[in-house]
Amino acid sequence: MKKVSLLFVCLGNICRSPAAEDITKKIAEDKGILTLLDIDSAGIGDWHIGQLPDARMRKHGYIHGYKFNSKARQICMNDFNRFDYIIAMDKDNYSYLSNIAPNKECKKKILRISDYLKLYPNYDKIPDPYYGDDDDFENVIILLEDACKNLPLSLFNK
């Protein structure tokens, strides 16, 4: 069986997208389907390449039982071929990804994570907590837990 591959994308790949990556891995692990998925994250910018997620995000992740420990990387053109879904954290990320997608088929792979919020439908993005406080980081985790449970993967519905 072919693995389903997901790439979560935010601005710098140190807050939202690595959190979405690990939250989705935990959901998949709990459902017994982690080996059927290829899950990664990337950033639009190159400012944080090689860095661990923001310490505040790691702290709040730990409180929720997550280990946000992937190293930041920048999205590359090969990602459009490698991944089945490329999931943007906000409208700006979605627009950027749509603009750099090499063709229409690749553009169809790009999703907005906010479209999968069920408990918090009034949010049209996962807000960037970088310049915020502890409440902002906590909010991101709560929103991502909701959205990641509802991603359009038939595997998650088994």
Rank of each mutant, 00 (worst) to 15 (best):
M57K: 03
M57F: 04
M57S: 15
M57V: 01
R58I: 13
K59G: 02
H60G: 06
Y62M: 12
Y62P: 02
I63V: 11
I63K: 15
H64G: 02
H64R: 11
H64I: 00
H64M: 10
H64D: 10
G65I: 05
G65H: 01
G65V: 08
Y66P: 04
K67D: 14
S70Q: 10
S70F: 00
K71A: 02
K71E: 10
A72I: 08
A72L: 08
A72C: 02
R73I: 10
R73H: 07
R73P: 01
Q74Y: 07
Q74T: 06
I75D: 12
M77W: 02
M77I: 05
M77N: 12
N78K: 14
N78I: 06
N78W: 08
F80I: 08
F80T: 08
N81F: 13
N81G: 04
N81E: 09
R82A: 10
R82E: 13
R82M: 02
F83T: 08
D84L: 06
Y85D: 05
I86N: 01
I86Y: 04
I87R: 12
I87M: 07
A88I: 01
A88T: 01
M89N: 09
D90K: 05
D90R: 04
K91Q: 13
K91I: 06
D92S: 15
D92K: 12
N93W: 07
N93S: 04
N93I: 11
Y94D: 09
Y94W: 01
S95G: 01
S95R: 11
L97N: 10
S98E: 06
S98R: 12
N99V: 09
N99E: 14
N99H: 06
I100A: 08
I100W: 00
I100T: 08
A101N: 07
A101T: 12
P102H: 01
K104T: 05
K104G: 00
E105A: 03
E105K: 15
C106G: 14
C106L: 10
K107G: 00
K107F: 00
K108M: 09
K109L: 11
K109H: 08
K109E: 04
K109F: 05
I110Y: 03
I110P: 12
L111T: 08
L111Q: 08
R112S: 13
R112F: 06
R112H: 09
R112C: 07
I113V: 12
S114Y: 06
D115G: 04
D115R: 02
D115I: 07
L117Q: 06
K118M: 14
K118A: 06
L119T: 11
L119G: 09
Y120T: 12
